[in-house]
Amino acid sequence: MTVSPLLSLPGAVREEAGRVAAHYGDPLREQRTLAEGAGLVDRSDRDVLVVPGADRLSWLHSITSQHMERLADGAGSEALVLSPNGHVEHHLVVAELGGTTWADVEPGTGSELLGFLDRMRFMLRVEPQLVTEGWAVLSLVGPTAPEMLAGAGLPVPGNEYAVAPLSEGFVRRMPAIGDGAATVFDLVVPRAGLGGVADLLLGAGARPAGTAAYEALRVEARRPRFGVDSDHRTIPNELEWLSTAVHLEKGCYRGQETVARVHNLGRPPRRLVLLHLDGISEDLPAPGEPVLAGTRTVGRVGSVVRHHELGVIALALVKQSVDPGTALAVAGSTAAVDPEDTPAELDDTRAAARDRVRAVRSATIR
Rank of each mutant, 00 (worst) to 15 (best):
E309W: 10
F170S: 05
L315G: 05
H61E: 12
V105A: 06
G266E: 04
V137N: 01
A103C: 11
L6Q: 05
R300L: 13
P343R: 04
E238I: 10
R361Q: 12
T101V: 15
A209T: 08
P84N: 02
D355G: 01
C252D: 11
A152I: 09
H90A: 14
A38R: 01
A213P: 02
Q129R: 15
L97M: 12
R354C: 03
A216G: 02
Q31C: 13
L284E: 05
S65P: 02
L274S: 00
T364R: 14
V219P: 00
G158Q: 12
D347T: 11
G86K: 00
F116A: 03
N85D: 14
E30I: 09
S362W: 14
S58C: 04
R267I: 12
R56S: 12
R172I: 14
R366A: 15
R46A: 08
D283I: 14
V51S: 11
L275Q: 00
G99D: 08
V298D: 01
A22Q: 09
V301R: 09
V228G: 03
L57G: 13
G169L: 05
L242I: 15
P224A: 05
H67Y: 15
V126K: 01
R361K: 07
D341M: 01
V163H: 09
A204C: 11
L275I: 00
R296Y: 07
E147N: 06
S62T: 10
S77W: 11
W59P: 00
D45Y: 00
V88R: 01
G76D: 12
L130A: 13
G74I: 07
E127P: 00
V337Y: 00
H61V: 07
S333Q: 15
R270P: 03
V322H: 02
T258L: 08
D347I: 14
G108Q: 10
D341V: 00
P107K: 01
V318E: 02
A162S: 15
P236Y: 04
A150N: 11
V304F: 04
G227W: 06
G99C: 06
